[in-house]
Design a protein around this nucleic acid. Structure first.
Lengths: 197, 197, 197, 197
DNA sequence: TATGAATGAGTATTCATTCAT
DNA sequence: CATGAATGAATACTCATTCAT
């Protein structure tokens, strides 16, 4: 009865290893342009094995996104949880974003690519994505100790907008521009808080 | 003497008609998923005819984007140029964006899709996109009578971020949420201007 | 009744001008790779006009070949008819071939290309080609004042073989090799004549 | 330990079977006019399978040529190696050529067709072809025990020229003509050797 | 559990030819 | 006579997925 247990654990672990092995390829070539054969080759396995662990290319991607998001949030809190005060914490958030800007740019392109390719609209996938967004938003509310979600939403919209700029600016060469815009954002939020009180 | 003239006019005009006929299909299916066959069928012509007027699928897209951008800006100014005062003009800008939110969501998806499909990096296309962004930004600076581009950039980043939300929210059903966020944005800018002076 | 005559002459002349205008394109790109549009553009006319003077692409080619062959033979005799003696005349033939080797290489490739593209086997086209071969052979017999066709055939087979080498040697850069082989050929024929008598 | 071996053997063997299955189609329709779909159908496999074993149409052709050449040379030596004396050996060579004339005619058309379609000039392919030519030439020098390559080149040029005649004569119906020409060739070479010594 | 051979519908693009103007 | 817009079947090649071994 318990003989199968270790196998399951192994399977789960192996699955995660495979997922982590996909990150780079997806980041470089996007979702639609990464073929199952390339993924398999990159992982050093056969396509058959891939289909043994994931039911489709779509499935690989969804599981990958989930995995990465969990890693992201915990990575942020690992280094920023002891900072105190609204301004310092806003600064910490923006610093983290800017430092990982290229990474998030790739992620954003990946997502949009995925949504264009798989025209689903199925509630399932939509729910899934919303969950991720709301999770991140709630974590932000908590971290900044804001009274409601409105300001966190505002901040995250701005961050998304900032990430999108990669399409026009290609890579983070315009570091100054990104920096001054994020400072402006912080100032805006602080002003707003001052007015409110 | 003028016998050859009408043909030229017709060709140019017909080309524009074909472009307008593509909008809907591209909006619905994205760039990568719209096949030349589908485009041709949607227009009621043969694929050969399509290639008679455009040299490639990419060409169709680039010309379409240019066409739409010109229409967008002139459409905005047609209805909003006589409004006076910073607040009212911000309001006008945000109203325009929200009213056409679905349209801009589709446009943004289309662009990202296009860039994922055609891994270009060629300066030509990049220049092209930047031009559009800068053009819109400058028009915004002019319209809002702002002293510099910084605030206009900030506004446009926010707008891009807002548009991106379509991925999570699908369609503009959450009209209230969009509206309250844009009001917050307006408030932020006004506060900032007050502080500055 | 005679009013139409000049028109016919004009038509015939114009047709030949068009043919001559095709030579370079066909030589550069071969038969199959020369499109009707390119031919038309090269001639500065529309495709419609092309079809007004020739009933098909095939027709253009056949008429072109005929035209060129007539020119070739008369061009040779224009410069070599006064030479006397078998050896000198053989030399004249081989010199002419080597001097125009590139041209004949292109012609040969053109022919083979044409035959591969248009899998006809229709007697008509075959007859046509044989006529050309026989015509050239007979002219050679006459020119060299040979007693029968056998030796002329032998010479022409060798020349065809020499022309074919372009596939391996690309362009006539190996001029020495071509020259020594043709000298060997001349020697062979002279030896043979000596033995016979 | 040897469990994985059979698969490799099978793959290589199957690849050769596929190649042999292409010969007839290529011979009948040429290179450019044989579509991948037709090739696949002729082999009783899908186009996907074709691309599983060969990376392109060009690749199929190159591998096919190599395969056939190896077969040709070994087939000749299998039946002609014990013949003695220059005349007898020349006779053996010409007999072999004439007996397989149709086959070589098809091969030559195939090659020229291939070179017209794939406007390469790339050194790689050119090298490849030259190798084949030189290899055959050297084998001829060895077999005839000639002092240098000059006479072998001469012989092979003649053979190429003979093969080219298929364009005019279609099939080997004119067997007598071919035979008398090859006898003439043999006589020529023998005369030449006599003179030289 | 793992393999990789097999599939075949689907992709953008080309091009000889026709025909209304 | 001349134009060039329109056609649409045909091309090489791709790729997510299946399944026998």
């Amino acid at each position: 009865m318990f003989l199968a247990m270790p196998k399951v654990v192994d399977r789960e672990q192996y699955r995660k290893e495979l997922l982590n092995g996909c990150v780079e390829l997806f980041a470089q070539k996007g979702y639609g342009s990464s073929t199952m054969r390339q993924i398999a080759e990159g992982l050093g396995v056969s396509t058959g094995t891939l289909y043994h662990y994931f039911k489709s290319k779509e499935d690989i991607f969804m599981q990958l996104v989930q995995e990465l998001c969990e890693q992201d949030i915990s990575r942020f809190f690992a280094q920023a949880s002891e900072v105190e005060g609204l301004e310092a914490r806003l600064q910490a958030v923006m610093d983290f974003v800017l430092k990982n800007l290229q990474y998030y740019q790739q992620q954003m392109l990946l997502w949009v690519d995925f949504f264009q390719q798989t025209r689903i609209g199925s509630d399932e996938e939509l729910q899934f994505l919303r969950q991720i967004w709301n999770g991140t938003r709630d974590a932000t509310v908590d971290y900044l100790q804001l009274p409601d979600t409105k300001l966190a939403d505002f901040l995250m919209i701005f961050i998304d907008g900032l990430i999108i700029q990669c399409i026009y600016n290609r890579s983070a060469e315009d570091a100054d521009w990104y920096h001054s815009q994020s400072q402006l954002m912080i100032q805006m939020v602080l002003n707003h808080e001052q007015f409110s009180s």
